[in-house]
Amino acid sequence: MKNHAFPFSALVGQEEMREALILNAVDPRVGGVLIRGGKGTAKTTAARALADLLPEKGDGKRMVELPLGSSEDRVAGMLDAEHAIKTGEIRFEPGILAKADGNVLYVDEINLLEDRIVDLLLEASASGVNRVERDGISHAHPSRFTLIGTMNPDEGELRPQFLERFGMCVNVVQETDEGKRMEIVTRRMDFERDPVTFRSGFDSEQAALRKRIADARKLLSGTSPNPGVVRSAARIVSHLGVESCRADVAIVRAAHARAAFCGMGIPAREDVLRATRLVMPHRIETEPFDEDRGPMEGFEEWFGTV
């Protein structure tokens, strides 16, 4: 089916979520984003809307979705039964992880995914390779993807190991500003009434955003990680008491992506700050029994003193 998604530039509010998604479009190495939030906070709409902003690829695919009830063999790939019955040959039939290679892989209600499917995603995202060893098939293919997940924490949390695989995490809260809320509802109504006309109304904005992302990508391809930023990241992460070095890497990537999106080669203090806000929340909360203390709160002041 064709893409008739809500245009990204028509989203109202939820700045953090939008920023996180855009930074992932600018640099997939940021490592994906997990969007957590209550019902009706437009997280799914926003995630799907990102597809339109991703750079065009040869096969036209930019975002691959993994539906909840997917079976293990369809995700990892399996023996091509049709081919086997017809020809007697054993052949690998690629699954979702093959389709996802080089793309964004989106999972809605990601916290409801079965453990075995999570294991497959974990393995592929850790190694960049999908290995299938089943039903007489021994096959491996590259599977590098930007993982985007949305979830409602009321229905359960993610496993820590899985959580940590996300470069960023955004907790969205609902909009309480009356004016913004009216704007959201009106746009949504207009879109549902006539998606084609609505989308065309945002064509130029979408194009501008796409161009900005493309420019940022170009700028980024010529820069290498700034040692000063690496050091600040290490300092921030140690200060916040997080062990995993993936946090540092994600901050550096995100800061650079943000700088590039603003047309700068070297990240400024603000870029590092914003990057930290996106990269750290789920790493601090990994331990679900910690107080909701939010060391992030005092963090900005602390950062100001360094």
Binding site: S224, P225, R231, S238, D248, V252
Partner: peptide, 15 residues
């Protein structure tokens, strides 16, 4: 901190 920065830097460089 120094080791940490070094580890992160080399990870970024490698990738």
């Amino acid at each position: 901190l120094d080791t940490r920065a070094e580890v992160v830097q080399s990870s970024l460089e490698f990738h």
